[in-house]
């Protein structure tokens, strides 16, 4: 994430290479990402730049290399420029996304709900069934997700697996732009992940219990006591506090000091 302001690198000495940004030729240092090359050329981003760290999906980009017929894709903030690269970044991705109510089903956190859930996916995203199996989406995905595979899993109603497989999606929408069957894979997967989180994963019981304790005011008195404590007293509590071992068994460790439990 360095740039001209914050780099102590050796940009001046660096070799420049030609790239075409939307058809205009610029010479840019060869080690830059597309995003930094575009800025080096003098552009100031409004669209097409969010996290600058490969996770927000704002910077989906198409490019071709000289002598190669293939249309390549990448995230501008993660892809290094190459000589002769022809670059076009996507400012926006129109996607199909119906509204829905994820609270609409019974059986919070129980796996048996899958049938009704699958039915709702079919209703909301019927285009998922138009998949022609060309795998362009999987080849397009800058996160290396097997998009076609999760689309097939959604089709078959294996929603938990589809959620898992699509988990690292940054929702750049490049798959949806390329899909010949006009599916908006990333929005369908978003719905499926939410269903999986809410209905296909068991609820954390310790969490439910703790919420009930908090709401019953179980910690109010002790927190008030801590808040009223003099700084030395709190400091000594802090310095002498027991540390749970890193490799303790989940939910099993018993602290010696239970004064503040």
């Amino acid at each position: 994430m360095s740039n001209d302001n914050d780099s102590n690198g050796s940009k001046n000495k660096e070799k420049l290479i030609p790239v075409q940004i939307m058809g205009r030729l610029y010479d840019v240092p060869e080690s830059l990402t597309i995003m930094k090359a575009v800025e080096y050329a003098g552009y100031q981003y409004v669209r097409g730049c969010g996290c600058r760290g490969g996770i927000c999906g704002a910077c989906g980009t198409f490019y071709r290399l000289p002598g190669d017929y293939q249309l390549m894709t990448g995230l501008a903030c993660q892809t290094v420029v190459q000589p002769g690269m022809m670059i076009m970044q996507l400012p926006y991705v129109p996607a199909n996304r119906p509204n829905y109510d994820v609270e609409a089903f019974d059986g919070n956190g129980v796996a048996g709900a899958n049938g009704a859930l699958h039915e709702s996916v079919r209703r909301l995203f019927p285009e998922v069934y138009r998949c022609v199996g060309c795998a362009t989406c999987s080849r397009t995905c800058p996160m290396g997700i097997d998009v076609m595979d999760y689309v097939a899993l959604i089709g078959r109603g294996e929603l938990a697996k589809a959620a898992d497989l699509s988990f690292s999606c940054v929702m750049c929408g490049l798959c949806a732009i390329r899909c010949p069957a006009e599916i908006s894979q990333h929005t369908a997967a978003m719905y499926v992940r939410r269903l999986a989180g809410r209905y296909l994963t068991p609820k954390a019981e310790h969490l439910t219990r703790r919420v009930a304790e908090v709401q019953a005011g179980r910690f109010d008195g002790k927190l008030a006591q801590l808040k009223a404590m003099k700084r030395d007293e709190l400091t000594s509590l802090y310095t002498n506090r027991e540390r749970e071992p890193d490799l303790s068994e989940p939910g099993q460790w018993k602290p010696k000091d239970a004064a503040w439990l």
């Binding site: 919070n108 988990f167 992940r193 269903l195 989180g197 809410r198 994963t201 609820k203 019981e205 919420v211």
Partner: peptide, 27 residues
């Protein structure tokens, strides 16, 4: 700190996929 468990449960209910053990316990 008091709202923390409530906030996490709210997220769980909205469908956030937390890392969990098979029985639902949060990692």
């Amino acid at each position: 700190v008091k709202d923390a468990p409530v906030a996490i449960e709210w997220l769980e209910r909205l469908g956030v996929l937390f890392d969990k053990y098979p029985d639902g316990r949060m990692k």
